[in-house]
């Protein structure tokens, strides 16, 4: 129990960010027209590609001889980049279609 409380105490700022972000996320998209549901989902999909940062950290600190870590980290970097790049490009292609004609 002590360790849990310590964890909360040490990470209290992150926990504040967590709670506030939940409300921001809900607030920000509460008035979206249904025509934009798909691009919005796709855009959000690209944003969670931020997990790539974790992959970079794992990769960047893997020791030279530790092959499992190097390979898994490398894979993680590729997959994370796919999520980010593919996500933003697909969203852009969808939104390109929405531009006003004349």
């Amino acid at each position: 129990m002590d360790s849990t409380i310590t964890f909360i105490g040490e990470n209290i700022q992150l926990i504040y960010i967590l709670i506030l972000s939940i409300f921001v996320g809900i607030e920000v998209i509460s008035k979206v027209p249904s025509a934009l549901h798909t691009p919005l989902m796709s855009g959000a999909n690209a944003i969670h590609g931020v997990v790539i940062i974790g992959a970079i950290i794992v990769m960047g600190h893997a020791e030279a001889g530790n092959w499992p870590a190097l390979i898994l980290g490398f894979l993680a970097v590729i997959l994370g980049t796919l999520n980010v790049v593919g996500g933003f490009v697909v969203t852009d292609r969808m939104l390109e279609m929405f531009k006003k004609k004349k």
Partner: peptide, 22 residues
């Protein structure tokens, strides 16, 4: 949380809550 990394946290949670609402 693991890396004490604010941008991963905001980005992730933002999508988590907005995605649930969506």
């Amino acid at each position: 949380f693991l890396y004490d990394n604010q941008v991963m946290l905001t980005g992730g949670i933002l999508v988590g809550s907005a995605g649930t609402l969506l």
